[in-house]
Design a binder for these strands. Structure first.
Lengths: 100, 100
DNA sequence: TAGGAAATTAGCCAAGTGGCTAAATCTGTC
DNA sequence: GACAGATTTAGCCACTTGGCTAATTTCCTA
């Protein structure tokens, strides 16, 4: 299981990390961990224009972190891989250590 | 435990993810999970020039993911937060889901 | 079917990233 | 102390990212 990943795998992994490497996107992921939300709700949450938020969500979707579903005039996004939430605790511990 | 993090916390978390959002740096972190390495070893591993690798390592250090120690003319880096390795499994599952 | 809201796409621009080479710094050795 | 090797820093350049506004698409409701 702990075999060396290939270059292509590292590249793909990096894409996932890159998708999470933005405060606004983290905020959205955190919000989506509590249930699905439409784009307009997330736009209000992060305080950016809707086109901006839409592109952030497209990034998260492309990375496979969220999925979307159109219902009527709205598009609802939901977290498809909740395990990303586990990251946050580890990241918090990283930050604690780095502050010493 | 699942309280809403603050904006500053999301920003700091994003920094950690950003440090991991690069194939070469992931490769280095993976290698360091098997023990400390000097800069020249890592440079050969990733196939980039030493200055480039040195800057990548500085990023990882700044994010609190690795630490360094000078011994003689060489600088050895080691993984300070092994929990980041747990990310990789989750990321792999993210990728599997996104490939359907 | 006309109007309006929700969302995406396109185009623009400022700022950041990542690679390189050259120069500077540090360490051990002769 | 000069030299050689290891590392970092500085400076340069191409490319990407992330924000905005404007335009386009889609869907619901009169």
């Amino acid at each position: 299981m702990a075999n060396k990943p290939t270059t292509a795998q590292f590249k793909a992994q990096a894409q996932v990390f890159k998708a999470l490497a933005h405060p606004g996107r983290l905020l959205m992921v955190d919000e989506l961990s509590r249930g699905e939300r439409c784009v307009c709700e997330l736009a209000e949450l992060v305080g950016s224009e809707m086109p901006t938020v839409s592109r952030h969500l497209a990034q998260l979707k492309h990375a496979g972190i969220v999925d979307d579903e159109k219902r009527g005039a709205q598009v609802f996004y939901r977290l498809v891989t909740p395990c990303v939430m586990n990251f946050f605790q580890c990241v918090a511990s990283v930050r604690e250590k780095s502050q010493r």
